[in-house]
Design a protein around this nucleic acid. Sequence first.
DNA 1: CCCGTTGTTGTACAGATGTTCAATAACCAT
DNA 2: ATGGTTATTGAACATCTGTACAACAACGGG
Lengths: 198, 198
Amino acid sequence: MPQEHAKKDRRVVRSQEALKQALLALMSQKSFDAISITEIVESANYNRGTFYAHYENKEALLDDIIDELIRKFLASFRAPYEHQDVFRINELTANSVKIFDHIHQHAELYTTLLRSNVMPNLREKMFLALKEISMDELEYPTTGVNQELLAIYSIHALLGLIFHWVESGFEQSTSYMQEQLILIIQWRPMEVKAKKEG
Amino acid sequence: MPQEHAKKDRRVVRSQEALKQALLALMSQKSFDAISITEIVESANYNRGTFYAHYENKEALLDDIIDELIRKFLASFRAPYEHQDVFRINELTANSVKIFDHIHQHAELYTTLLRSNVMPNLREKMFLALKEISMDELEYPTTGVNQELLAIYSIHALLGLIFHWVESGFEQSTSYMQEQLILIIQWRPMEVKAKKEG
DNA sequence: CCCGTTGTTGTACAGATGTTCAATAACCAT
DNA sequence: ATGGTTATTGAACATCTGTACAACAACGGG
């Protein structure tokens, strides 16, 4: 049963899909802020009233696109442990490793979102989604470390690497990013030198 | 000599200051997106044309506010090492520790920015600022770890903690956050259990 | 203090936004 | 296929945006 709640009117499905595709097409050409609702509906060949019948504003339309992407993103994170009970360090990092695969798989879409300057929003949503499942579904053996703060720290760090990878235009290979993540997690700060002036 | 570049016309200083204060006042009451330029100038008692004489849009006005905040933010990060040459681990974390002081000192402003939904933008700008100075001014002894990726990872992680603290309404004390940061940096992932269903 | 420079104002305009409404068309269940 | 329901349309409206311009006011150097 693929339909989740109430089966939607075909007209609604058509309209929303056309609006989403129109927005994505425009976003591959210009900044999200520079796109007007009028522009979206004319590109999609719908009436402006139809837009407002389904969405409050263009952010809501973008959210629709992003939410679908995040569902797939979460699935890639869950994949390594959904049939397991206990992880050791190598298996844990395998979680994050799968995420790099997901991103590379949807490189074009992520690049469009980057080009259109909506990454900060996407990042925030991805953080919330990742935090929720990692607090619900994982358990860290901590000794005096606040578990929530640890999760927040780790997830933001991971997302930082991922979005940098997208911003760099996928300069590095997927496996290089995966390697580096593992190295960084195992890295211990010992001594940091201040560079000389100049 | 406090004036940096060209000495500004007093009218300009007055106008820009009034506009910034008006925006901040409005942001403490509603979302940034919900604030119109017309609203800002009427609250500040200026003509709409004056706004456009100084700023392209309201984002540019917000940037003015944020840039000033980031200058202070950076100063708090630099403070621990600006007259030193080499750090050990405790001194390094002292950098970040000073940041918590800065945030707590400007708690009201950060809370206003949070309430008005501009945190993702602020976060991005702070990341770029921190990355620039930590790449320029610090040097990590790495063994196979990409230095840029390490900086990106660490900075995003730190900012994650900081903004969570703001979002929580400063529930925890400054010293608790500082303690936890040190604990987390020293934490090593060993084994992570998946929770039982339900 | 005076005058050239620069900022501010009021007004105007085309386009976008957000909302409402009645008329029409497309849908789904029976 | 028919009818009740719901989506889409076009039109209209007040408000906001971004831009332009001439008239006026405030500034700062000499």
